[in-house]
Design a protein around this nucleic acid. Structure first.
Lengths: 262, 262
DNA sequence: TCTTCCGGGGGAACTGAGTGCCATGAGGTG
DNA sequence: CACCTCATGGCACTCAGTTCCCCCGGAAGA
């Protein structure tokens, strides 16, 4: 359980593609699907792939890593995406777009993703491994937000909370798509979920969840399209109880409009 | 890496205290602190404790479990706490109080918690294990919220997001306390963090974080004090831009009031 | 008192993941 | 041809976790 691919293994993001790696992944999944993850030993895999046992651990630091062969590259893409891009756009929208990068990776191989999903649901060890992967995504988002929120009161707290919320929403949409065996619209699912958190935390302010559904904005069907919205100063949020007479509500709104927010 | 304590090991919540268990924990931490976690083998531990190697795995399903000896009981306490308690109080406040149960466990043994924190920060395997523990807490919170939000539109999405936010906020406060070597006020740190998410998601609706600071409510300094607020169904939230004519706003409010939430 | 059962503990042996070390063999360069 | 490098294979080792079986002491029962 070494969790990351520390060792040599430079072949992950730069070089084209070692055939060895793919052969090992293919052999692994063939065996995992026909007899289960724990019932498959590394020796089984390498003998099926026709390579030496030592080579397996040259390409994958652990048996679990072979189940998530693309996450390392995806994490690198995400950090690169977050590093690029200036301070002008909305931080929350940017981390949402960063999360969409992960979705895109899943959506590139629907059948593979669905098979892996079934595996990770059944095998506790794989679920734990996936958690550590997700945690690294969340850390990347949170650290980006911490930079953007530096100076804000409770900046790191907000960063941690928003990063967690974005990851949770993304995973909610992703799992919904995976449970449909890849039949539903992955992008729509995740857009819907991310729109929810963006509505909650975004600079356009937020209705409390569970109030007005407020027709889905679906800010960006295609990944990596940072949506830059109007600043928060243009938004008025009114909270009221049912049963309050309308004239009180209007009065409240007018009072609020007089006074500059902030 | 078996992650949970499946086997026998009935001695966790009910029976008073097996001395064997405590002896193993004590021996483990003594060795972990003086020569590191990975440099300590299970044989080292059992020979120091003066027991058989087999007994170690009778009490702890894996080497990692000895580092978190109380989490199983705490998780049981949390699920019990969430199971008890009716539908009258605010769900978000209740999960915040549930999170405080975890804090209380940490705060009961400050030096132990700080030592463990230093360990988990250094050893990737322990960090991964801790993630799986935290995940189980988060699942417990999310499942409770899903029950409470059943019927709401996007109920499970809201439940997942809020559970993740609560856990993130709790951990933010907890880590802050742990980094201070247990010198700061753990309860205050976590209360502050949880107040933030409660302000964001709470039934009294929420100013977007980062807009109005809104004097800290500090809902409950003592753990397990469910603050019972008005149910969310009685609240209407309207979001609008400045400059929108008032009749449009009133129309929007009336439209919302017509339609039952849910 | 002897027997029988039982349950906690100890120990030997086994499986399998992961690592270190070295040999080999192919390809490239002087 | 000599030399180097690098990818691979093979072997042996450590250690976590499991399986199987033993021992022992105490309690119940004849």
């Amino acid at each position: 359980m070494s969790e990351v691919s520390r060792p040599g293994q430079a072949a992950d993001a730069t070089v084209p593609k070692p055939p060895m790696r793919d052969a090992l992944v293919a052999a692994s999944f063939q065996l995992f699907l026909e007899r289960g993850y724990e019932q498959t030993t590394v020796d089984d895999i390498v003998s099926l792939a026709g390579v030496g046992r030592r080579s397996f651990f040259r390409y994958f630091p652990s048996k679990e890593d072979v189940v998530f062969p693309d996450h390392e590259r995806c994490l690198a893409d995400m950090t690169e995406f977050l590093g690029r891009g200036g301070d002008e756009d909305d931080p929350v929208a940017r981390v949402c777009d960063a999360a969409r990068l992960v979705l895109r990776m899943y959506a590139e191989n629907p059948t593979f993703s669905v098979q892996r999903y079934r595996l990770t649901r059944k095998v506790p060890g794989l679920r734990a491994y996936e958690l550590s992967v997700v945690w690294r995504y969340e850390r990347a988002l949170a650290e980006y937000l911490r930079r953007r929120f530096s100076g804000r009161r409770d900046g790191t707290l907000q960063a941690d909370v928003i990063a967690a919320a974005v990851v949770a929403a993304h995973n909610n949409g992703l799992r919904s798509w995976l449970r449909s065996d890849g039949q539903s619209d992955a992008g729509a699912e995740v857009d819907h979920a991310l729109a929810h958190v963006q509505r909650t935390f975004g600079p356009t302010a937020a209705p409390a969840p569970g109030s007005t559904p407020a027709s889905e904005p679906t800010p960006a069907p295609t990944p990596a399209s940072t949506s830059s919205e109007a600043p928060a100063e243009d938004v008025v949020v009114v909270v009221s109880r049912r049963g309050v007479p309308m004239w009180r509500v209007v009065q409240e709104i007018e009072t609020t409009l007089e006074r500059p927010l902030d």
